[in-house]
Every structure is written in C-alpha cells, then in structure tokens.
C-alpha cells in the first residue's frame, strides 16, 4: 500500500507545520479540521462578498423567474 507523508522539512510557517504534522500523525483529526476550516472559510468569504456586493447598488434580494 502506498503511504503518503507530508514533507515538513520545507514548511516554515507555524500553522502550516502544525497541519502537515497532523496529517502525518492523526489523519482523523486532520479530516475534521479540513471539513471545519473549509466550511468556515466558505462562510467568511460568503459574508465578505455579500458585504461587497451590497455596495454595488444591485437588488440582490428579489428576482423574477422567467423561463422564456
């Protein structure tokens, strides 16, 4: 079986090193972090973009459904 390990020797930042080590030592916790952080980053970006889009002056709360 092929085992993949993260190369921590080339990682300098503390957070990156923590996650690279976690990938090598506790994949379950790494998977939980991956899901939580992906969802969190999605929400943060969504809220941020929402704020920016609200400044454009477009009506972003209603639309007409026209099929043709």
């Amino acid at each position: 079986m092929l085992v993949v390990v993260a190369d921590t020797r080339r990682v300098s930042s503390g957070i990156e090193k923590y996650f690279a080590n976690l990938y090598n030592t506790n994949i379950l916790l790494f998977a939980v972090w991956a899901v939580v952080l992906t969802a969190l980053w999605g929400v943060i970006l969504g809220v941020l973009m929402d704020f920016i889009m609200s400044r454009t002056g477009l009506d972003l709360k209603s639309r007409k459904i026209i099929e043709h």
Partner: peptide, 20 residues
C-alpha cells in the same frame, strides 16, 4: 471535492437570498 463544498456554500448563501 473540498473546494466544491466551500464554493457551493458561498453560492448557496447568495441563491438563498434570491429565494432560489
């Protein structure tokens, strides 16, 4: 797949405001 989950979250938030 992970990127798609996050991206769909952003799109769903916007579509939700439209009532879609």
């Amino acid at each position: 797949i992970a990127h798609i989950a996050g991206k769909s979250m952003i799109s769903t938030m916007r579509h939700s405001k439209f009532g879609n």
